[in-house]
Design a binder for these strands. Sequence first.
DNA 1: GTCATCCTTCCACACAGTGGTGAGGCCTCC
DNA 2: GGAGGCCTCACCACTGTGTGGAAGGATGAC
Lengths: 252, 252
Amino acid sequence: MEQAKPATSMRSLERALDVLEVLDAGHHALRLSEIARRAGLPVATTQRILGVLEARGRVERDANGYRPGVGLIFGAHAYLTSSPLVGAARPVLQDLAGATGLTASLFKRLGWSRVVLARVAGDAPLRYELPIGERLPLHLGAGKALAAHMEPAELEEFLAQLGDHTLANGTTVDRDDFVAELRSIRERGYSQARGEREPGMASVAAPVLDAEGAATAAVQVTGALADIPAERVPELGLELQRAALAISRRAY
Amino acid sequence: MEQAKPATSMRSLERALDVLEVLDAGHHALRLSEIARRAGLPVATTQRILGVLEARGRVERDANGYRPGVGLIFGAHAYLTSSPLVGAARPVLQDLAGATGLTASLFKRLGWSRVVLARVAGDAPLRYELPIGERLPLHLGAGKALAAHMEPAELEEFLAQLGDHTLANGTTVDRDDFVAELRSIRERGYSQARGEREPGMASVAAPVLDAEGAATAAVQVTGALADIPAERVPELGLELQRAALAISRRAY
DNA sequence: GTCATCCTTCCACACAGTGGTGAGGCCTCC
DNA sequence: GGAGGCCTCACCACTGTGTGGAAGGATGAC
């Protein structure tokens, strides 16, 4: 979580963002001293920053400490309504969910993870809502569609920090397995996953290319294993590639 | 949008927040000079701030100018998952939607407006998706349940800046009408609205009291006028008051 | 009672943030 | 093709803002 000096003008702003990130990460109220420790800042400084943020509604406070504030909602709302990517995806996701009966989602890549940006539930009984903003790994499920289209140098770095990993269904995947799978995803044009992240769930995904041709986002459909039998996958893959292309066309 | 000096330590942070607010407000990409103008800042300063925000993912840029960035999503996600209010409300909203067949929502008051924090769709065909983060007025629909419980001094200020207003159904409401309605809402314990904000829609709402007894949030059910006939309102009102109490208990 | 934490306030210094200015790029209009 | 806007960015000397150590209180554990 802590890094060295990024060498920038605007130290105070930079530090305020550090504080915000600490709050975004902790899933419950944090005490002042705890925040200061995690952000690597003097307590007094941290307090001053939190004071301003609180006055502006980006932070809330109670007896247990500081928590993210309502003010943060507006930023996300503004992003979701002004982003051409999300705007372009919404109708496409609706169509996908309607045509397949599965839940359709849009992800955007961010560093070594991906974020849920939009989701339309299929007709399967959906449980809870809006995991929007949830951060998921890049090496499981739809993440693979994104990883498969990295630049060689970037991929190398990604693999290095990843190492071997184990899927939710018990399989262990080493570097060679993973590289092979990424290649086949690139050739086929879509990725699939069966019980990788969540047991009992399956998904198919395709990358959305941006104006420069980089895979910065992905579309996905998810459902129970039974809803996505193996023989249905090629057809879904094709449909997802079409969807991805449609989004890319509209957004850029 | 522009105010005078709030006289605070941390000018740069304060200004950065001003810039963010400008971006949150504009619904499309803004040019540097436009942002500077709206925030009341020198161009050079604005650019420095935007540079930092962009590097940190809170702002994105393309040929048309600056837009809110993906980074803003995390803050909102963190707020929604860590807020006791939202956590407490979720199951209650589910129950409400299930029991009434209407769409149930949670609002929080913020200044002279309210924000949608959570929503569970009823079985009526819901149209669009997650208006979470949307900002709505305090003098229409569920907003009245909040306005009705303001402190006298605050209410006075609110009425002053409001003046007369016209509803979506054509009715004009002057100060006396409005004050009378607020009183009756306070006595009854819930508010109702028919075609006030959106023609053809009706709603019933009750305030959620926080630890200090102030009405900082509200629960609401909405539906088409036909789904909420007048004779059903008292029953719904009671149900909403129960829901509001349940949320209040759990959250504080 | 004592001791340990944690939060808050204060203040003098130093350096981070400021913003006027000018170069360079990319338009559009003539 | 050239002139005139408008936008973005780099530069730099000045100064007022942000800094953080230290001291004062409040709270809780034992």
